[in-house]
């Protein structure tokens, strides 16, 4: 048996919500906001286990022993419903929300409460979001709805206003790096920099071949010319253009930052800093800014139905132009 714990940097949020729970004034709708990889979902599960546990009222902590905790640990809890998009960029559809409504309208199965967790709530499509409103406003007694998002502004205002927002700010670097150092080998600070301070995202990056991929793409990017463009575009599309665009974005942002402040501590991609500084010398600030704008546009288009090769080539051409004139 085990208890899902919140992460060490979430103590404040945990205290706030567990106190509210033990005083029986936990709001029925919670909106967890914070950047990616700070452990919002893990926190939601920890909270769900506590609320569902049979003995948590006294201790504000899941016991890890009762039937409810047993089912929870086996991922079989009948009173917990997790809804998330089928795929990261797919919307949450109205049918999924209807299932939630049906779930909430029935009495709980084993526990006294029922908990619904909606991950990636910003992906709720228009109809789905609207059909959730009624349940969010006045759910049956003893229900808890937790919405998780890293982009609260993408949610309907009517949804935001029906939830108590709980903020998960970026994790303090010292705390994050000491936690991460226990989990993964390698350059912890670099990983944290790359994941914008989200320790869980950093752990994920470390576990995948992200760093290797990044190194390769960086070399491609430096060595890019009009002859090898098509083959590199092909290669990037194969690696997942979206990831490559995120990397590009962080490199260009580094260039802009360094150009503006001339301070190499501002460079997030520390391992590449000497190469980036070399590049900056020949580049023009206004052109970089424009390139970054264009990249943002292309990034949002990746998810749409546009030929990925064309998108990649377009950005490459603009990058070459940017370099050439300088």
């Amino acid at each position: 048996m085990s208890v899902v714990n919140s992460f060490p940097w979430q103590q404040a949020q945990w205290n706030q919500l567990s106190t509210a729970y033990s005083q029986e004034c936990l709001p029925h709708g919670l909106l967890f906001c914070g950047s990616r990889g700070v452990g919002k979902k893990g926190f939601a599960f920890a909270l769900a286990q506590m609320v569902l546990c049979e003995h948590s009222m006294e201790s504000s902590q899941a016991c890890g022993q009762c039937k409810s905790c047993q089912l929870f640990t086996a991922h079989n809890h009948p009173d917990l419903k997790l809804t998330e998009p089928d795929d990261e960029h797919k919307p949450i559809k109205v049918n999924q929300v209807r299932e939630i409504i049906d779930f909430m309208n029935l009495m709980p199965h084993t526990s006294s409460h029922r908990v619904v967790i909606i991950d990636q709530a910003q992906q709720l499509n228009h109809n789905a979001a609207n059909s959730l409103l009624k349940s969010l406003e006045e759910p049956p007694a003893n229900s808890l709805l937790i919405l998780i998002t890293h982009r609260p502004s993408a949610l309907l205002g009517t949804i935001r206003s029906r939830c108590r927002q709980v903020l998960f700010p970026a994790v303090e670097t010292a705390l994050a790096s000491s936690w991460l150092a226990d989990q993964v080998p390698g350059d912890v600070n670099l990983l944290l920099n790359l994941s914008h301070g989200g320790p869980l995202l950093a752990r994920e990056l470390a576990a995948s071949d992200y760093l290797q991929l990044r190194q390769q793409c960086f070399e491609d990017w430096l060595g890019l010319n009009s002859n090898n463009m098509l083959s590199i575009a092909n290669k990037w599309v194969k690696c997942g253009l979206e990831n490559v665009f995120v990397m590009l974005d962080s490199w260009i942002m580094d260039l802009i930052r360094f150009k503006a402040a001339n301070d190499d501590r501002l460079i997030r991609n520390q391992d590449l800093s000497s190469q980036l500084i070399n590049l900056v010398k020949h580049l023009d600030m206004s052109k970089l800014m424009r390139l970054q704008q264009q990249l943002l546009e292309r990034q949002s288009q990746v998810q749409q139905n546009i030929n990925a090769n064309l998108l990649a080539e377009d950005i490459m051409i603009r990058w070459l132009e940017c370099k050439q004139v300088a």
Binding site: M104, N105, L106, M107, P108, H109, P140, A141
Partner: peptide
């Protein structure tokens, strides 16, 4: 029950959750 309705036959027990409303 508070959250269920059960019918006990000779060899079968049927239980359903209730609508909360």
């Amino acid at each position: 029950g508070e959250n269920y309705f059960r019918v006990v036959f000779k060899n079968v027990i049927f239980t359903t959750k209730l609508i909360d409303g």
